[in-house]
Design a protein around this nucleic acid. Structure first.
Lengths: 148, 148
DNA sequence: ACAGGGTAGTCAAGTTACTTGACCAATATC
DNA sequence: GATATTGGTCAAGTAACTTGACTACCCTGT
């Protein structure tokens, strides 16, 4: 693939990612969850299954644990998460989503589905699946974090 | 497309974009251009063809013109760009890349081509072109800017 | 031709999301 | 049981932005 083609691919990928991020964020706001930035979404994604420690979260988001702790402070203050004692380590604290946090997560999923549906209207279902499959092969286990 | 599939697509897209951004940035640093952040790359992309005004740049990057002006200050201080009088408007100033700025732009293109080649090894050339074409149809004219 | 409003850019100050550094408590290692 | 390591927080500093105020210049209409 030529240099210019690589740039076209890069630009399109970054543009699509930026648009998707904004649509998800906009959809979350439209559903009544305010005071959140896109970065919080990446934190929610890590907290969602079973909770996580601050250190886990910091590694996932690519920031210091102090910064992650401040972010958790903010989520706690706004009622989206809470700190619980860790069942197996008295030093650690397990950060878990509250009911409001789960509702926000579902809102983000709905917003993402909405954005993807707009793409389905352009590409069609089968092309969209092909796009997804190729992206999954290219970036299989990537930490989804704000990289720039 | 189901909700979970939409989330898988979103995660893969964001992971791929994050990885690409980091690889480009890493490649630029590896080629000896320091003191630059990924955001500067988006500025370079706008300045590259014929230069741009600070206001143009601000719109392209999705920030205030004051912030764009500060960013230009930084690029000027580091020797990547310079402010020239605008040929048609005495209020405006045309920000253009210096030789060093062009060299950095070429380094970024080379790094992007390198990252894309790694994907070509996984997908193959034809699949990669298909990926590029689908992304171009989904995000045709997007402003490539740091969105989160 | 010049008055009024809009636009390009900068200066100054404030905000915020991070950082580095120091520290304590609990845990693993030997 | 001494020692080093890990999880977390407190405190202070930094850097990339923001909002607000201002000047210089352009454009239109009468």
């Amino acid at each position: 693939m030529q240099n210019s083609e690589a740039m076209a691919l890069s630009a399109a990928l970054l543009a699509a990612a930026g648009e998707l991020t904004q649509r998800i964020h906009g959809g979350v706001v439209a559903r009544g969850f305010e005071g959140l930035r896109p970065a919080h979404g990446f934190a929610f994604a890590r907290l969602a299954p079973d909770g996580a420690t601050v250190t886990d979260l910091a590694a996932h988001l690519g920031m210091t644990k102090q910064a992650a702790s401040q972010l958790v402070d903010e989520l706690v203050r706004k009622g989206y998460a809470e700190r619980r004692p860790h069942p197996a380590d008295a030093r650690a604290r397990l950060v878990v989503l509250t009911g409001s946090g789960w509702a926000c997560t579902r809102a983000a999923e709905a917003a993402a589905a909405e954005a993807v549906r707009a793409w389905a209207d352009v590409l069609g279902e089968s092309e969209l699946r092909a796009l997804r499959d190729r992206l999954l092969r290219v970036a299989p286990n990537g930490p989804v974090r704000p990289a720039w």
